[in-house]
Design a protein around this nucleic acid. Sequence first.
DNA 1: ACTGTTTGACTGGTCAATCAATAAAACGCT
DNA 2: AGCGTTTTATTGATTGACCAGTCAAACAGT
Lengths: 191, 191
Amino acid sequence: MSAQAQRRTQLIEATIHEIGATGTLSVTVGQIAKRAGVSPALAFHYFGDKDRLFLASMRHILSSYGRDVRAALNGVESHRDRLEAVIRASFSESNFSHDVIAAWLNFYVLAHRSPEAQRLLVVYHRRLHSNLTRDLRPLAGDAGAPGIARRIAALIDGIYLRYAHFPSNEPEQNASAHVLAALDNELKALA
Amino acid sequence: MSAQAQRRTQLIEATIHEIGATGTLSVTVGQIAKRAGVSPALAFHYFGDKDRLFLASMRHILSSYGRDVRAALNGVESHRDRLEAVIRASFSESNFSHDVIAAWLNFYVLAHRSPEAQRLLVVYHRRLHSNLTRDLRPLAGDAGAPGIARRIAALIDGIYLRYAHFPSNEPEQNASAHVLAALDNELKALA
DNA sequence: ACTGTTTGACTGGTCAATCAATAAAACGCT
DNA sequence: AGCGTTTTATTGATTGACCAGTCAAACAGT
């Protein structure tokens, strides 16, 4: 990894960490730079302005989520198991850490006013929807799959929110269990 | 309504409006006061500081939501219809306007760091959960009702989020329809 | 004149962004 | 290997704007 790339990820990780620590996007570039052990000016040098630093951080998180999903799907054959893998990946440790949760929350709010953030959110939605429909279609048919996928995707977001605010003992287990229960209901209702 | 109360609601409504317009909690008291047609100092006089102004605004929204639910339930007898009323109320016009959606989004983020906001969020969660379980119990039994209620509540939040970002032609209709479909699946799966 | 309401002016502090100056590499040359 | 030169990485200092919160004075209703 080149020196520049190293600095960039260093700053991105500091950003995510700092958003987690303060719970808000109104973190100062100074705080972020301090956490990264560099001067504030360097952050501007590498990212231009604060917004782009945030967006780069969010892209970082989305990439990592995408990798998790791909890894979880790798080699899994049965449609039902693949759906379960997609669902569990949403609550995997790397997407469910304190800092990343805080970033996601703020990202959702940002998507309301920043076109670029909204574009990223659309990408996430589309990926999730397509991951779900691909393996739902054989189980639920072309007509039923999209509706089920929408509900499951929304449920993932909703459950994520709940556990984000009030973590239980084994958040990953319980969160996934709820979504999987809903999935079973959807499939059972078809029969 | 007393003069003080009038001023307070005037400022609260300006706050909600301004949050909707900017999409963020980092609205200045100056902007809010301007929208309300008063001097910024008056906002401080009535609410002490910015945080309390925002929390009062959120309490205002939650009260209005509570009134909507109560009104929707009034006189409805069948358990199934009552559940439907609760669900529809979550997407009723007064809770689904642009400004209120923006306030909700920011409220969720705030609940991560403000104890008072978290307390309010717990109240909302509890009310929704109890509204759902009350009429689910006769249909799903004491064992099944709480789990179903949690999934439906999370789905309401998740669907709310989706339609908040990407409103469709008839958001209220479609949003409710998805949740009602999930409810039907849950009940069908029991049989 | 009295009481509660409202305001204008002010303050201390904060922050994003800029830029000229410095330190550190990278390179070419002998 | 040593040395001077060019390029790149990094910083300190600064600026201009903005903002939450205070307070004493002005105002309105009775």
